[in-house]
C-alpha cells in the first residue's frame, strides 16, 4: 500500500512539473516576438549578424532565410514572411499592386576576378572590354584593346575562359545591369536579368563555384560579390568609371557611387547605382532591398529592427566588408517609413 502511494506521489509530481514547464513555455512564447524574413543570399551574413546583436539587446528574434531574391519577393507577396529581401528593386506599380513598401538596407558591389600570371600587377578593364569579353568578341588575352588598356602589363597569349553564375542570382542582375548600361550591344542582344542567355562561357554554381573555377584555370575571368572576393583574397581588376578614372572597389569608391545615385521616395528608392558619375565611383555598385508588407501588424517591428541596425549596425557591416548606407539616405528612408505609415514609433 505504501509502495502504491509512493508511485502515485511520483506521478503527481511529474505531472505538476510538466504543467509548470508547459506554462513557462507558452508564457515565453507569448512574450518573445519573432520576425521571419526571407530572400537574397547577398545580405544574409550582415542580416544575421545584426539579428544576433539585436536579439542580445532586445530579446527579439529575427529568422532570416537566404532562399534567393526571387523566393523572397514571392514569399513577401504571399505574406508567408514578415519581410522579404531582394537584390533587384521592384517597380512602384508592382509594390502598390501587392501593398508592399521597399527600401535599401546595405550596399555592395560586384568585382571582376581573373587568373593571369601578372606578377603583382593589377589588370585594368573598362566597360567595353568586359562587354566584348562576355560577348565572346575578345577571345584572347593578348587582344590589342586589352593591351591598350594595360600598357605596363605583358599580357600572355592565352584563350579567355569566361565564367558566369549558373543559377539565377542578384549578383548576375547587378553585373548585367552594368553591362547593359555601358554597352548597347549587350543591352540589345542579352539584357539585364538574374539569369540571362549567356553568349559564351561556362556557368559555375554560386560565388564559391566561380571563384574555384577561376582559381584553377589559367586565363579564366569571372565576377563575384565584393564581400566574397575580399574574404578569399582574390585578384580584383581595376575598372574605369564614368568619369574616366580607374578605380578599385573599396568602401570609399562604393560610397561615392551611392552618393551620386538618385534616390527618390516617389519611386520607392528604385535606383540604379551602376556606372554613376563622380571621380571615385566604383561602376558595379548596387543596393540590396528590404520588402515591407504594409498590412502586416508586425511590420513596425521590422522597421524598428532596421532603424536599430541603421543606428548601431554600421561597424558590424563594415567588418563583414559591406558598405553601410550614407547618412542622408537613412534619413530619407525614415521619412519614407512615415509616409508609408510604417515608422516604428
Amino acid at each position: 500500500m505504501r509502495y502504491y502511494s509512493k508511485i502515485k506521489e511520483n506521478v503527481m509530481f511529474s505531472f505538476l512539473l510538466c504543467f509548470i514547464f508547459l506554462f513557462c513555455f507558452t508564457l515565453s512564447q507569448g512574450w518573445s516576438l519573432e520576425l521571419t524574413g526571407a530572400g537574397a543570399t547577398f545580405p544574409q551574413p550582415v542580416l544575421e549578424a545584426w539579428a544576433y546583436q539585436y536579439y542580445k539587446e532586445t530579446g527579439i528574434k529575427i529568422n532570416y532565410q537566404g532562399i534567393g531574391s526571387g523566393g523572397g519577393i514571392r514569399q513577401a507577396k504571399s505574406r508567408t514572411v514578415d519581410f522579404g529581401a531582394s537584390d533587384k528593386p521592384l517597380k512602384s506599380s508592382e509594390l502598390r499592386e501587392y501593398n508592399l513598401a521597399q527600401f535599401p538596407e546595405i550596399i555592395g558591389a560586384v568585382v571582376i576576378t581573373y587568373n593571369l600570371p601578372l606578377h603583382n600587377k593589377t589588370l585594368r578593364l573598362d566597360g567595353r572590354a568586359i562587354c566584348d569579353i562576355y560577348l565572346g568578341k575578345i577571345k584572347n588575352w593578348n587582344n590589342p584593346y586589352l593591351k591598350k588598356l594595360n600598357p605596363d602589363i605583358n599580357l600572355p597569349d592565352l584563350p579567355i575562359i569566361v565564367v558566369h553564375r549558373s543559377e539565377g542570382s542578384g549578383t548576375t542582375w547587378l553585373f548585367t545591369t552594368y553591362l547593359s548600361k555601358v554597352c548597347s550591344e549587350w543591352k540589345n542582344k542579352i539584357g539585364a536579368e538574374k539569369s540571362v542567355n549567356w553568349p559564351v562561357g561556362i556557368g559555375a554554381k554560386g560565388n564559391p563555384g566561380v571563384t574555384n573555377y577561376v582559381k584553377q584555370t589559367l586565363g579564366a575571368i569571372g565576377y563575384v560579390e565584393y564581400t566574397y572576393a575580399m574574404e578569399n583574397h582574390l585578384p580584383i581588376a581595376i575598372l574605369k568609371n564614368r568619369s574616366g578614372n580607374f578605380v578599385k572597389p573599396s568602401v570609399k569608391t562604393m560610397k561615392a557611387a551611392a552618393f551620386y545615385a538618385k534616390w527618390s521616395i516617389k519611386k520607392d528608392f528604385y535606383a540604379d547605382l551602376t556606372y554613376q558619375p563622380g571621380r571615385d565611383s566604383y561602376p558595379i555598385t548596387g543596393a540590396s532591398y528590404i520588402l515591407l508588407i504594409k498590412d502586416n501588424p508586425k511590420t513596425k517591428e521590422v522597421t524598428k529592427f532596421f532603424k536599430w541596425a541603421f543606428e548601431n549596425g554600421d561597424e558590424i557591416a563594415k567588418k563583414l566588408h559591406y558598405i553601410p548606407l550614407p547618412k542622408n539616405l537613412k534619413y530619407l528612408i525614415y521619412k519614407y517609413w512615415k509616409i508609408q505609415k510604417v515608422y516604428p514609433y
Binding site: G68, S69, S195
Partner: peptide, 18 residues
C-alpha cells in the same frame, strides 16, 4: 562544350524565377 540538363536547369533557376 558546356551544356545543361533539365534537372540542373530547374535546380539553378527555381529560386530566382520571379
Amino acid at each position: 562544350e558546356p551544356f545543361t540538363t533539365i534537372t540542373v536547369a530547374l535546380a539553378n533557376q527555381f529560386t530566382e524565377a520571379d
